[in-house]
Lab assay of single mutants.
Amino acid sequence: MASQGTKRSYEQMETDGERQNATEIRASVGKMIDGIGRFYIQMCTELKLSDYEGRLIQNSLTIERMVLSAFDERRNKYLEEHPSAGKDPKKTGGPIYKRVDRKWMRELVLYDKEEIRRIWRQANNGDDATAGLTHMMIWHSNLNDTTYQRTRALVRTGMDPRMCSLMQGSTLPRRSGAAGAAVKGVGTMVMELIRMIKRGINDRNFWRGENGRKTRSAYERMCNILKGKFQTAAQRAMMDQVRESRNPGNAEIEDLIFLARSALILRGSVAHKSCLPACVYGPAVASGYDFEKEGYSLVGIDPFKLLQNSQVYSLIRPNENPAHKSQLVWMACNSAAFEDLRVLSFIRGTKVSPRGKLSTRGVQIASNENMDAMESSTLELRSRYWAIRTRSGGNTNQQRASAGQISVQPAFSVQRNLPFDKPTIMAAFTGNTEGRTSDMRAEIIRMMEGAKPEEMSFQGRGVFELSDERAANPIVPSFDMSNEGSYFFGDNAEEYDN
């Protein structure tokens, strides 16, 4: 993207840094990872977990959730003011799984939030270390993106479920800051804005008074975040219109849905970061690795190297396929839920299948599930090659597409044709070009129609051997075009429920 120079890199967003050079960025990201790792080690000690239990991804998720809940100030305040039966607002906890007599047992633990905050700050040299908290939120978000298709949420806001490739980060909490905003897809931002506008339509006082002023500035800020994701002048001009509207209503909703559809071809720039579970960072720190000293990046080879040398386990339900569970977590670790499966298959070195073909449910185990038949197995999170994460949407291309997802959002900077089903997408653009945004709409449609099938995206960008740390010898991959490109292809993934 041309304006790259004016933006802070995501590592800076990730670490609240002012302008830093590459070495400083690597050190501050490393410091953040160190903090998460030290916190995780301490929690495993508190909970008396064995090494194996500490490497269980379900335990990692519970521990991450506990610290996120302990620092969720708004919710904590709300819980104190609106006490609900049987919930102690000062405590947080969740299921911890232990191996007892050759069987997995679930144990519900409860801790004072104050105590968890103390352990977290102690692991982070006394700081609140917001960057580390956001990092864990993005890992949870990436896992949700890989596990669930947001059909219901899309339909509720009037969008087409086939636009799911635009929904990265749709389950990120509001408090995820600049680093969170960077990884949100165009569809996620559109959905947040539509929800806001709908509230304004239904509630006369939404934009009024002292609160209304705050609401208005939040609305304009979200519009600017979305505008910054678009790469064409016409899309940005249309966002200006939406932002400046005196009284946002149905016309703005129409414009936003139009823009979301246009992003299936004229893709937005959305950041991709490899955020790993805390149970990967903990053992690495415990083994003596100093992330701050060595430096770390979320968008280069580092996460690949770390996963190459990590042992992570997962509980497996009786009829689940461990290899499929591994694929789910591998995609989440690489922030690749909406990437082209052919690119992923090449990088991973084994075939990556669409969601609907995987015999696996989510990673988390519900409290009512029976533990008797639970097994555990090693997650295979290694890769054959590594590639640089991208934040450009890439230019655009036609490809055989599917009944489910009709476009992709690249996660890796790797040369390819970008699949999208042009006739299906263009069919949504018939007729409606009147109104105050008509010239911009016409211009956007013209650009979409001009998108050429034979153009290559990320020209000359390749993948790298894991021994090639400096990215000196790019390998331009070859793809098996007979395979499906979309992950949520004609899909039956479970729906995400809060």
Rank of each mutant, 00 (worst) to 15 (best):
His82Met: 14
Glu81Gln: 05
Leu110Ala: 01
Thr23His: 15
Thr433Asp: 07
Lys305Ala: 08
Asp439Met: 04
Ala129Gln: 10
Ile119Thr: 13
Gln4Val: 11
Arg267Val: 00
Phe206Gly: 03
Tyr219Asp: 11
Gly404Leu: 01
Pro277Ala: 08
Gly362Tyr: 05
Thr157Asn: 10
Glu380Tyr: 07
Pro453Tyr: 01
Met136Gly: 06
Pro283Ser: 13
Ile96Arg: 01
Asn21Thr: 15
Glu220Cys: 03
Arg461Gly: 07
Arg99Ile: 11
Gly249Ala: 11
Pro423Gln: 14
Leu108Lys: 08
Met222His: 07
Glu46His: 08
Lys87Arg: 10
Asp255His: 08
Gly249Asp: 05
Leu315Arg: 07
Arg342Cys: 07
Asp439Ala: 00
Val343Gln: 06
Arg317His: 07
Ile194His: 01
Lys113Val: 01
Pro303Lys: 09
Phe412Cys: 04
Ser353Arg: 15
Asn124Met: 10
Ser245Gln: 04
Val270His: 12
Ile347Glu: 01
Glu64Leu: 12
Asn498Asp: 00
Arg195Ala: 04
Pro477Phe: 00
Glu64Ile: 13
Ala85Ile: 11
Ser269Trp: 09
Gly93Cys: 01
Arg221Pro: 03
Met189Arg: 00
Ser274Asp: 05
Asp145Pro: 03
Arg389Ile: 03
Leu256Ala: 12
Lys98Trp: 06
Met371Ala: 14
Ala451Leu: 14
Leu315Thr: 08
Met43Glu: 11
Val29Cys: 12
Ala442Gly: 12
Lys293Ile: 06
Glu64Arg: 11
Asn124Gly: 12
Arg175Thr: 06
Asn250Glu: 04
Ala237Gln: 12
Ile253Thr: 13
Arg204Pro: 01
Gln415Val: 13
Leu381Tyr: 02
Arg150Asn: 08
Pro173Phe: 06
Glu469Trp: 03
Arg213Thr: 12
Met1Asn: 11
Ala428Gly: 04
Ala286Cys: 08
Phe489Trp: 01
Leu358Trp: 06
Arg391Ala: 02
Ala234Asn: 07
Tyr10Asn: 13
Glu455Val: 11
Phe458Trp: 15
Asp16Cys: 08
Ala284Asp: 08
Thr151Cys: 04
Cys275Pro: 06
Ser383Gly: 13
Ala233Glu: 01
Asn211Met: 15
Ser402Tyr: 06
Arg355Ala: 07
Gly126Leu: 15
Ser274His: 03
Met167Ile: 12
Glu495Asp: 15
Ser377Lys: 00
Asn368Phe: 03
Tyr281Pro: 10
Thr151Pro: 02
Gly209Thr: 08
Ser297Met: 03
Tyr148Val: 04
Phe39Val: 06
Asn432Glu: 00
Ile194Cys: 14
Ala22Asn: 08
Arg246Phe: 07
Gly349Asn: 06
Asn370Met: 07
Ser377Tyr: 05
Ile265Trp: 01
Gly212Leu: 10
Glu11Asp: 14
Trp330Ser: 10
Ile197Asp: 12
Gly169Leu: 06
Ala442His: 00
Pro303Ala: 15
Leu47Thr: 11
Arg384Lys: 15
Ala472Gln: 11
Met448Gln: 14
Asp203Ala: 07
Arg74Phe: 08
His272Pro: 02
Arg26Glu: 09
Phe291Leu: 12
Glu465Ala: 03
Gly228Trp: 05
Arg175Asn: 05
Val476Ile: 00
Gly300Arg: 09
Lys98Cys: 09
Gly200Thr: 14
Leu341Arg: 02
Asp372Cys: 08
Ser165Gly: 10
Asn334Ser: 13
Ile316Val: 13
Ser478Glu: 00
Ile96Phe: 10
Ser287Leu: 05
Arg470Lys: 15
Ala251Asn: 07
Glu484Ala: 10
Lys214Val: 07
Asp480Val: 13
Cys275Gly: 09
Arg175Ser: 06
Phe230Ser: 04
Leu47Asp: 10
Arg342Thr: 04
Ala123Gln: 04
Cys164Trp: 01
Val329Asn: 02
Glu375Ala: 02
Ser141Gly: 14
His140Ala: 03
Leu379Arg: 01
Ala178Asp: 11
Arg243Phe: 12
Ala181Leu: 08
Asn321Gln: 08
Ala218Leu: 10
Ser3Cys: 03
Asp51Val: 13
Glu484Cys: 00
Pro423Ser: 13
Arg65Trp: 04
Gly490Ile: 01
Asn59Met: 08
Phe458Asn: 06
Ser69His: 09
Asn247His: 14
Ser170Met: 05
Arg208Trp: 04
Leu264Phe: 14
Gly404Cys: 08
Ile194Val: 15
Val190Tyr: 02
Lys305Trp: 11
Ala129Met: 15
Asn498Lys: 15
Val463Met: 09
Pro248Met: 04
Thr430Val: 05
Arg416Trp: 12
Met189Gly: 10
Gly169Lys: 12
Thr378Gln: 06
Pro248Cys: 15
Phe206Met: 11
Phe346Ala: 13
Trp207Tyr: 13
Gly126Lys: 13
Phe206Leu: 11
Phe304Pro: 05
Leu266Phe: 07
Gln398Leu: 14
Arg243Val: 08
Lys113Phe: 07
Val329Pro: 07
Ala366His: 08
Met137Cys: 08
Arg348Ile: 10
Pro173Trp: 00
Thr396Arg: 15
Ala323Thr: 08
Lys325Pro: 02
Leu266Asn: 03
Leu298Gly: 08
Gly5Ser: 15
Phe291Cys: 14
Arg348His: 14
Gly485His: 08
Pro474Asn: 02
Glu252Ile: 04
Leu68Thr: 09
Gly295Ala: 08
Ala332Gly: 12
Gly212Ser: 08
Pro318Phe: 12
Met448His: 06
Gly362Lys: 07
Leu226Lys: 07
Ala179Trp: 02
Ser245Gly: 15
Ala284Arg: 15
Tyr313Ser: 11
Glu220Ala: 06
Gly288Cys: 13
Pro95Gly: 14
Ala234Phe: 05
Asp88Val: 00
Gly200Tyr: 07
Asp51Ile: 11
Arg208Gly: 03
Thr430Ser: 15
Arg102Asp: 04
Thr134Val: 14
Thr171Lys: 04
Gly187Cys: 10
Gly94Cys: 05
Met136Arg: 00
Arg55Ser: 07
Ser383Arg: 01
Arg355Glu: 10
Leu298His: 08
Tyr78Asp: 03
Leu328Ser: 03
Asn144Ser: 05
Gln364Thr: 14
Val242Gln: 06
Ala387Thr: 10
Asp145Ser: 02
Asp101Ser: 11
Ala451Gln: 13
Ala181Glu: 08
Lys90Tyr: 02
Leu68Phe: 12
Gly356Val: 08
Ala428Val: 06
Tyr487Pro: 02
Ser3Gln: 10
Thr157Phe: 02
Gly288Ile: 10
Leu61Gln: 06
Asn59Arg: 10
Ile475Cys: 06
Asn124Pro: 07
Gln42Glu: 09
Pro95Asn: 08
Leu344Asp: 12
Gln308Pro: 00
Gly300Val: 07
Gly431Phe: 15
Val343Gly: 05
Asn395Ser: 14
Ile406Cys: 14
Arg75Trp: 10
Ala411Tyr: 00
Glu469Asp: 12
Val29Asn: 02
Gln12Cys: 11
Asn250His: 12
Asp112Val: 08
Asp16His: 08
Gly200Gln: 04
Gln42Pro: 09
Asn368Leu: 09
Glu252Lys: 10
Asn319Gly: 13
Lys77Tyr: 00
Arg441Ser: 12
Ile33Met: 14
Gly404Thr: 11
Glu14Pro: 00
Phe291Pro: 04
Val183Phe: 09
Glu469His: 07
Arg391Lys: 15
Thr430Met: 03
Asn473Ser: 14
Asn309Thr: 15
Cys333Thr: 09
Thr92Gln: 06
Glu53Ser: 13
Ile265Ala: 14
Glu484Phe: 04
Ser84Asn: 15
Tyr52Ser: 12
Met66Pro: 05
Leu344Cys: 11
Val67Gln: 05
Glu294Arg: 14
Glu192Lys: 12
Ile116Met: 08
Ala237Ile: 00
Gly300Ile: 06
Ser383His: 02
Gly169Thr: 09
Ser367Tyr: 04
Ala27Phe: 06
Met239Phe: 01
Glu469Gly: 09
Leu61Met: 10
Thr146Arg: 01
Gly5Phe: 00
Ala70Pro: 00
Ser438Ala: 12
Asn211Arg: 00
Asn205His: 03
Glu14Ala: 00
Leu47Val: 14
Val186Arg: 01
Ile475Gly: 02
Asn498Arg: 15
Ile301Tyr: 13
Val285Phe: 11
Glu294Gly: 13
Gly209His: 10
Ile445Gly: 08
Glu254Gly: 11
Asp255Asn: 13
Arg55Gly: 05
Thr45Ala: 06
Asp439Trp: 02
Met13Cys: 08
Asn395His: 15
Gly362Pro: 04
Ser28Gln: 14
Tyr78Ile: 07
Lys422Pro: 00
